[in-house]
Design a protein around this nucleic acid. Sequence first.
DNA 1: CTGAAAGCGCTAACAC
DNA 2: GTGTTAGCGCTTTCAG
Lengths: 331, 331
Amino acid sequence: MKRITIYDVAKEADVSLATVSRVINGSEVVREDTRVKVQEAIEKLGYKPNAIAQGLALQKTTTIALVVPEASYFYTGQIINGLVDVAKIFKYNLMLHTTTEGITEMNDIIENIIKSRVDGVVIYNDKLTKDELNQLTRYQIPIVVIGNKISDETIGSVYVDFEQLIYNYATECIQKGKKRIALVEDRKNPAMIKQLREGLSRAYAENGMEFTGYLEIPKEKKSSYEFLKSFIKKGIEYDVVITYRDSQAMAVLNTAKEADISIPDEMELVCVLDSKYNAMARPQISGFKIPDYDLGALAMRLLTKMLNEDDEVIDKKMELSYIFTPRKSTK
Amino acid sequence: MKRITIYDVAKEADVSLATVSRVINGSEVVREDTRVKVQEAIEKLGYKPNAIAQGLALQKTTTIALVVPEASYFYTGQIINGLVDVAKIFKYNLMLHTTTEGITEMNDIIENIIKSRVDGVVIYNDKLTKDELNQLTRYQIPIVVIGNKISDETIGSVYVDFEQLIYNYATECIQKGKKRIALVEDRKNPAMIKQLREGLSRAYAENGMEFTGYLEIPKEKKSSYEFLKSFIKKGIEYDVVITYRDSQAMAVLNTAKEADISIPDEMELVCVLDSKYNAMARPQISGFKIPDYDLGALAMRLLTKMLNEDDEVIDKKMELSYIFTPRKSTK
DNA sequence: CTGAAAGCGCTAACAC
DNA sequence: GTGTTAGCGCTTTCAG
C-alpha cells in the first residue's frame, strides 16, 4: 500500500494541498462544501496527517520527553499516571526515557532528547547534576523537575520537601521523648536518604543532640531484610525506626516479629513513602501519604503552561504537602 | 539562540551539507582530515542532528510506540523495564501510550500512533479487539502483542498461557483431592480472569465436575478485602483460593486471619502473579513466577527482528513458561 | 475562499 | 572524496 499523503487527498478532492491542510487544521476560512469534499476524500483514502512532516514544518513536535527512574515502583507508576493523564488532556505525546541506577548515562538520554526536538521535558530523578540540566537549557528546552527544588528561567519544579517532612516528624518524636530514631539506608535511593538524614540531623541539632541512628546496610548483605534480621535481634535500641519504602518497612515488621519485638509497643515503625501495601501489612504500617499522582499531574500542567506563550506562569516552584497517615505501627 | 542546522555546520567547516551528513552518519567515504574539520565545527556550534528532519527524509522514525495499561503495577513495570532495556540496545526511542480501563478510547491512541509514524508498536493489553489491530496492520505497521496468542503477517506475540497454567494447577489439586477451588474476581483484569475461569472450567470438566468457585465481588463492595471479610468469615468452603494479584492474596490472608482460619492448614492460598510482596507476607504466599521482564524484553526483541529486513523471523509466536513458587500458603 | 510556492532540516542518488 | 539537487509531507505567507 502506497503511503497516502496530503497531495493524494488534494487530487482526490480536486483542490490544492493548501486547502487540505486548512481543513486538517480546522481553519475557519474554508467554505463548507469544499470542507465536506475534502473530508470525504480523507475518509475514502484513509489519510492520516504525518506528524513528522508537521513537526518539521511547524518546528514543534507536540511531544514531551519523560525521564524517570526504572519504572518498577508503585510510587513512580503513580507519578507517571499523573503525567500521562495531563499530557493526554493537552494532546501531548510522550517519549519515555528511563534511568537505571548509575548505569544509564544521563548524557545519552540528553543527547537523545535534544535530537528528538521535543517541546519540553519532565525529569523525575534524584541524581541529576546542574551540569546536565544546563545542557538541556542551553538548547532552550523547557524543563520541569519533579522532586527537586531547582528552578530558573526555563526550569520549573514540583516537589515534596522530604527534608522538612522528616525534620518535623523527628522533632515531634524528640519532644515526646522518643529520642532514639533510626533511619534505614535505601541503596536504591541514595539522594533521598541523604535528604532524610539531613532533616534528622537538623532536628537533633536543634535539640542539642547528634543524629546517630543511620543504619547503613553492610555491602555483604543482599537485602534490607537480611541486614535487619541480624540487626534487630540484638535487642531494642531504637524508639522508632524509619524506612523509605514499604518493602523495607515490611522487612522491619517481619524481623521484629521474628525477634519477638512488639510493634508499636516496644518499637515504632514509620514508612516515608506510604503505599497500599502498608495498609495490608499486620500491624498496618504508618506512613506519609505523598501526593504522587499530583506530583506528576502538576508537573505536566506546569510544563504545558511554560510551553504556552499565552499563559503567564506565576510560580515555577511548586511545593506539595504530605499527610501523615497514622496506622498501627506507631503509637 | 538561533537553531543551528546542518547547513551552519557545512558553512563553518567549509564543506557541503552532504559531507556533513556523511560524517554524522558515519559514512566511510569521507577523508580523515575533512571528517575532523566537520567534527570540530559540530562541536564548536553544538550541533545536534534534527531527528524529525531525518525521520522525514528516511521515512522512519526509529521510535516504537508502547501501549500499556496504566503503569501502576509492579507487574507492568517489569514488562516496561524489559521493553525499555532492549529498545535502548537497538537505539529505538519509545512513545508511551497508556490505556485506562475502558476510559481511554483505543481509537484515539491508534490514530495517534499512525500519525506519529512510528516504526512499530508493542501492545500489552487484554482488551483489544481484532478490529483495532487491523486498523494498525492496515497501515502496515508491525506489531507485537504481549499477553495474547494473536499473530499473523505483521503481528507477533509473546505471552504466558495462563489458561493452561491454571488448568495444570487445578488438575493437580483435584487429583490430590482438593476439589473445592475458588477464584477471586479481579475487576481490573477481567480478560485475565476470564482466561483463568476457562482453565478452571476445563480442569473440572475433564474430571466430570463443574467449576462453581468463581467469587464475584458484589458491585457495592469497594475492595476485594471488604468483600472477602464478609465472605470468609462464613466458614471454610474452599480447599484452595486463587487470586490474580498480590494485593488480593494479602487481603485473603488478612481476612482469613481475622476469621481465625489457618492458612495453609485449613485453606490454601495461591496468587497467580507472584511478586516480592508475596514473599513479605506472613505466611508467605505461594505464586507463579511469571517472566515479566522477559515478556517485555522478548517482545521488543521480536519487534526489532520484524523491523529489520535482514533478520529472518522464525517464529512470531513466543510462549514463555512460568515457575510455580511454593511458599507457606500452600501445603 | 483558494492556489502557488517557499521552506522546515536532512538524506540519497547522481554528477564531477 | 565531495558537491548539487531533488525530494520527504506539511504549513504558511502571499497573490489572486
